[in-house]
């Protein structure tokens, strides 16, 4: 095997992995966009999920289209559907903090996200032990990170 072959294999590996993560990041982005346009997104409570339009005045709700009477030649007439008004959250107060887990402990990195020298790489609500130790060591966790530890 020549050195050119070894380099070529390494480059192909790199291209495949980079291609995959670029594809993945696009997929994740488009997923996020889809989630934000759905009306019942994150703000809905379990009670609301049964009827997402509970508490909305009837005249703002979409008109129900009645099926045409049998034998009649009339086609159903649909009215334009008004956009539902924003639904005020009625559940418990939403926690906007960004909390990650490292070695089983929870850290509030809400502030750190804006100042982190490695950029905002935080995946809130996940276990980031691997990511943390991919870049840092234990001493950083035992010192600097202590200010973000949730007791």
């Amino acid at each position: 095997m020549t050195i050119k072959t070894i380099t070529t294999i390494a480059l192909i590996n790199f291209a495949v992995v980079v291609g995959m993560i670029i594809g993945w990041s696009y997929a994740v982005k488009s997923n996020e966009i889809q989630v934000t346009v759905q009306p019942s997104a994150s703000a809905t409570t379990s009670a609301k999920s049964a009827n997402p339009f509970a508490g909305v005045p009837q005249d703002l709700l979409p008109q129900k289209i009645e099926p045409a009477p049998s034998g009649g030649g009339q086609k159903p007439v649909s009215k334009p559907l008004p956009t539902p008004a924003p639904v005020p959250a009625s559940g418990p107060a939403q926690d906007n903090r960004c909390i990650v887990t490292i070695q089983g402990k929870r850290y509030d990195v809400t502030q750190l996200r804006t100042t982190h020298s490695g950029g905002d790489i935080f995946a809130c609500g996940t276990d980031m032990t691997n990511t943390f130790f991919g870049q840092h060591n234990q001493s950083l966790l035992d010192t600097t990170m202590q200010q973000y530890l949730i007791p």
Partner: peptide
């Protein structure tokens, strides 16, 4: 990159 996955932002 593989080490950073599934954190795409970190991998990028």
């Amino acid at each position: 990159i593989v080490n950073a996955l599934p954190n795409i932002k970190a991998a990028m």
